[in-house]
């Protein structure tokens, strides 16, 4: 187990370096000159432009820029934004917001998704199951912006339960609605995966044994069925946690949540290479950590899996 974790951590190094490299060159390949863009429509003063480029480290070759960036990164220096703020501070402000939003969405999709999937699987072909299938299909088909606007309209404008946009990005209550929107599509997948898994496992021999042992239904389902059925769902949830963190761009935009998505969106618009790379670095780390946790959890759920 310890060796497994160590090896997985070592494997993360090339993945990490590779991703950062790709992202670095992708941001540098974006059209337009980020320094010149600072002056907007006006022509920049060549001397000022040169000074700015020098300060940002943009006056050397792309290869040299890459080496500088990687060197700084390894010492924990994420660089600066065009406006002179430290990228690490921008991340430090946005990340906690997104973590809250993603965790809220995650809890929502797990609790609601697994519950719907469980009852759907147990009552396969019945009214509840059919309703759930239509409902989840609907969730999967509706684009997030549409769902976001519908929610804003219904809950904020019609019912006036909430404000249309988030005022305080750290307030869990205010993040609730964006979290539901963010988790909705994944919820549909979780529900469907759970349903299929339950329906498949319910016919298994060990379920027959559990019933023959005279266990109450609650135990047959809770202990024997659910645990076996969660294995594929956990795999999905692990990768999804990373996706929720990075994929909140649209939701954060709709609800004006000052999180990673929002910051990343602005950084891309302004061609802020260092900021974009910085966020990607963090998201890659989150993704890698999530997949490691899933792999470890996997063996807790299914003892047949050996770490090799």
């Amino acid at each position: 187990m310890g060796r497994f974790v160590a090896r997985r951590l070592l494997q993360m190094i090339p993945v990490f370096l590779g991703t950062v490299t790709i992202i670095f060159f992708m941001t540098r390949m974006l059209p337009g000159d980020p320094a010149a863009a600072m002056w907007g429509d006006k022509a920049a003063d060549p001397a000022q432009l040169a000074a700015f480029k020098h300060r940002m480290g943009l006056d050397v070759s792309t290869g040299q820029q890459y080496l500088d960036y990687m060197g700084n990164l390894l010492t924990g220096n994420f660089g600066e934004t065009m406006a002179g703020r430290k990228v690490i501070d921008v991340i430090g402000e946005a990340l906690p917001v997104t973590i809250r939003l993603a965790l809220l969405a995650f809890v929502f999709e797990v609790v609601v998704g697994v519950t719907i999937g469980l009852f759907s699987g147990l009552r396969r072909g019945k009214a509840f199951d059919k309703t759930a299938l239509v409902f989840t299909l609907l969730l999967i088909s509706i684009p997030v912006p549409v769902l976001g606007f519908i929610f804003q309209n219904v809950f904020a404008i019609q019912l006036k339960w909430i404000t249309p946009t988030v005022q305080d990005s750290m307030n869990l209550g205010q993040l609730m609605l964006p979290a539901i929107v963010l988790g909705s599509i994944s919820l549909a997948y979780v529900a469907r995966l759970t349903r299929t898994s339950i329906a498949e496992n319910i016919k298994s021999d060990y379920m027959r044994t559990a019933i023959a042992k005279g266990l109450p239904r609650r135990k047959v389902i809770g202990t024997h069925l659910l645990r076996n059925s969660m294995i594929p769902v956990v795999t999905f949830l692990g990768t999804d946690l990373g996706a929720l963190m990075g994929g909140a761009i649209v939701t954060e935009g709709i609800f004006n949540v000052k999180g990673v998505g929002n910051a990343l969106y602005h950084a891309i618009n302004l061609n802020e290479g260092a900021t974009v790379s910085g966020f990607v670095v963090v998201l890659v780390l989150v993704y890698l950590a999530a997949s490691l946790i899933v792999d470890l959890l996997y063996a807790v759920l299914d003892p047949r899996i050996r770490y090799a």
Partner: peptide, 12 residues
């Protein structure tokens, strides 16, 4: 039951 491998719960 006949097949003990499938009749016992694999994860318990």
């Amino acid at each position: 039951f006949q097949d003990a491998l499938s009749s016992l719960n694999p994860v318990l």
